[in-house]
Design a protein around this nucleic acid. Structure first.
Lengths: 392, 392
DNA sequence: ACCTATTCCTTTATCGTGTCAACGAAAAGA
DNA sequence: TCTTTTCGTTGACACGATAAAGGAATAGGT
């Protein structure tokens, strides 16, 4: 275990040390005794594991809070999360978003650039541009995470079946590593968002929940027993075409009554704009109409809420989740959709199931990029690459 | 690691040895080199781990099959599953079913006894009676698994919230251990069934699938990435009251159009019996009517198939499962329900999702008991109790 | 028949990791 | 001050895994 003298990277630590760092990151300051209980190790092991970490300045002893117990108070260990920086990138069909975050998921800086086309050269160039822009000093970034649509595993190296870019089997991680010198990992974007929510978003501390995103499409991420589900090849989350009503408008694929036909931004704006003979209604305008009491807008939002509620109830019925987190840029409608949503939940929930806590998590595209940064951090703490490429 | 000279129990093995046994059990005969690759260990480790197992007669070298590779052929190792016997018990409101199975899940013997009441004394007595009946010799059974409804974890010791028996917080495992001398574990019954399907049923070799049961109720088990999902407290699988239609009959809880109202045995028999003015229609009679071309029966079965198809499509949309296994005593209707089911799947499946393989697994209550036996075996191979109680 | 490449399996020395048992340290309460 | 309780450290020790090296068994080429 060769470790550089002053600033060891998280990925270069041994498995036990990584487990300690992970636990400290997720559960805040903990005494060694508490760590021993959580990790099911003996106190002696924890001392041995933490000693070099403390010596290297990676973790330090907090000042003990006024203890409430009887015996000798524990010395809480804190991880200096700000020492470890990660970049997260989210690639959509027309824009690239990037953030710099520390190990605790706190965003320090962000940037984004439009994509003029979706060719490999263009996308790679813009990502590299953003990486350079957000890198404070060479070698200061421990890993780069890229989130984009497709059938990628948790820590993947290759873009697979991305419909928006029309890419398949593109070894993007390797390309970016060569260009930037930063270890790079890819992940399916909804999964990355879910990871971000779980580690340092509203899902923090919850063992079981779902993330339901509303915007251009309808997305889903599921966390059960602290694990983000992926399914065979990242196929979890195709929830958009779930039938939520026997009637209603058609979705873009010609289905009647499916969730997308009620929930996507496009469905909502057209559902309101068309009866009014207007084609300039965007989501904000639609919300304004509803604020002003427009009957059409109120009805469309109510229907959207209903669809959302049905999806939530189905999720909870099937998986028994105690909480559902709503996210996405289409969430602005929630104020007008909440009533319909709650009615639909009550109507469709199994009478033996307990009602889930529904949390609205208003967030922009940065949140998707932040999720990718969290995935990069998880990569280092769970399954780090064998040897770090030398960025010198 | 004290090991009895001739017949070591699976639970007394070390973690690595258990991992080897697990892999051999699930993936058939494997050479040491193949084991090393699957378990991500070095070949040297595998040799050290398997040596005592071979010496003890627990596993043995198979005669090498005609190899297709170039180098020295591997010596396939086989586990003598018949050496390790487990009992599985399934408790319903009016009957107790039990089987004796070996480590590979093969059923050697089975028995069942009616319950005159659901008091603790009665249930415990009948279970012990069945255990004695199925135990060939004292000490020959390595563990006992009990499956019953309730909110139990994977390997639980206490019955929690069992509605059928009206039990809560009953330390059944301890009671049975004291009486029988056999290490005992409890599990929620649908989860046990799913485990049985996964290890030695039609789900064998599949990493991701769902088990949908039809009978008195509608049940669900989900396996993702080789793990059986449980949710917070065994709450996965409350799928019965999922709305599958805006119209249709009421279910027992007064919901309109929910899955139970189309799928449970009671719903089907009444749906056919009432229009005919008959109260003696059971499931077999209903199937006979449909065989004879009775319009009502055909329609009811078609509706049931439709409901089943909607549930399957929703499952696949949400979790991306490539296969769904149908089980339960209500499955006899499938011949007449298949058309409706397939139509509903096609209609409700997300157009981007691949159609799941739907497998019918005709089975009786023994299958539930067998699942409990498999859970007992898993218990020994995954998380064995500290020290075996001495049955002498 | 012989050699080589390949794959498999085992042995030895060694190392990392974890535990046990014992002990010292720091608090609260009697 | 003494006891109790909990926390943290130390050293001896066991276990499990590995790397390195070499023997064993096969296919294929010369």
């Amino acid at each position: 275990m060769q470790r550089s003298a002053d600033a060891p990277t998280l990925g270069s630590l041994g498995p036990s040390a990584r487990a300690v760092v992970r636990t400290l990151l997720l559960a805040g300051p903990l005494s060694r005794a508490e760590l021993a209980r959580r990790l099911e190790r003996s106190p002696a092991s924890i001392t041995k594991i933490t000693q070099p970490l403390v010596a290297d300045g990676l973790i330090s002893e907090d000042t003990a809070p006024p203890g409430e117990s009887r015996g000798r108070p524990g010395a809480p260990l804190v991880l200096d999360a700000a020492l470890h920086l990660f970049l997260g990138v989210k690639v959509t069909a027309d824009e690239v978003y990037a953030v710099r975050a520390d190990a605790s998921g706190r965003v320090e800086a962000s940037a984004h650039r439009p994509l003029v086309d979706v060719g490999q050269a263009t996308v790679v160039r813009e990502i590299i541009e953003l990486v350079n822009e957000l890198t404070p000093a060479p070698g200061s970034i421990q890993a780069l995470g890229v989130g984009l649509a497709g059938q990628m595993s948790r820590f993947d190296r290759t873009v697979r079946a991305n419909a928006y870019l029309g890419w398949d089997r593109v070894p993007l991680a390797e390309i970016l590593e060569r260009a930037t010198g930063i270890p790079t990992v890819l992940s399916e974007d909804a999964r990355a968002l879910t990871a971000g929510v779980q580690w340092s978003g509203p899902g923090r501390g919850m063992r079981d929940f779902a993330v339901l995103t509303v915007g251009v499409g309808v997305g889903l991420g599921v966390v059960i027993e602290d694990r983000v589900l992926a399914g065979p090849t990242g196929k979890v989350g195709r929830i958009g075409h779930t039938r939520v009503s026997d009637s209603g408008p058609l979705c873009s694929q010609g289905h009647r009554g499916c969730a997308s036909a009620f929930l996507t931004t496009r469905s909502v704006t057209q559902g309101i704009g068309v009866p009014h003979g207007r084609s300039d209604v965007d989501l904000d305008a639609a919300i304004e109409l509803a604020d002003a009491g427009d009957e059409v807008a109120l009805r469309v939002f109510d229907d959207a809420g209903h669809a959302l509620g049905v999806l939530i109830a189905q999720l909870v019925n099937m998986l028994g989740l105690p909480a559902v987190i709503l996210a996405g840029d289409g969430l602005g409608m929630l104020a007008h959709a909440r009533t319909g949503m709650e009615a639909a939940i009550a109507e469709h929930l199994d009478p033996n199931a307990t009602a889930p806590e529904v949390v609205a998590f208003t967030s922009g595209f940065d949140e998707w990029a932040r999720g990718a940064a969290v995935v990069a951090c998880q990569w280092m703490l769970v399954d780090p690459p064998r040897s770090d490429p030398d960025p010198a």
